[in-house]
Amino acid sequence: MKIIYELCDICGTCVAVCPVDAITVSEFKVEIDNDICTDCLNCLKVCPAKAIEEGE
């Protein structure tokens, strides 16, 4: 999964629905660890800012 940083608001919604804890957050940035990600697409579906797309 890939985050489009121009769109991401660092709201944490994607983190709440990730079943494998592949997404980390800091004050300034959200990151997806694609080694852990299982491509379930939960994060992409709920992101209110449409800031997640498929691919690495």
């Binding site: 983190v15 709440a16 629905v17 990730c18 079943p19 804890d21 957050v25």
Partner: peptide, 15 residues
Amino acid sequence: TESRVGRWAGINTTV
């Protein structure tokens, strides 16, 4: 909402 700390403690917080 993000609730990662619970995961560190071994609690399933996934919604």
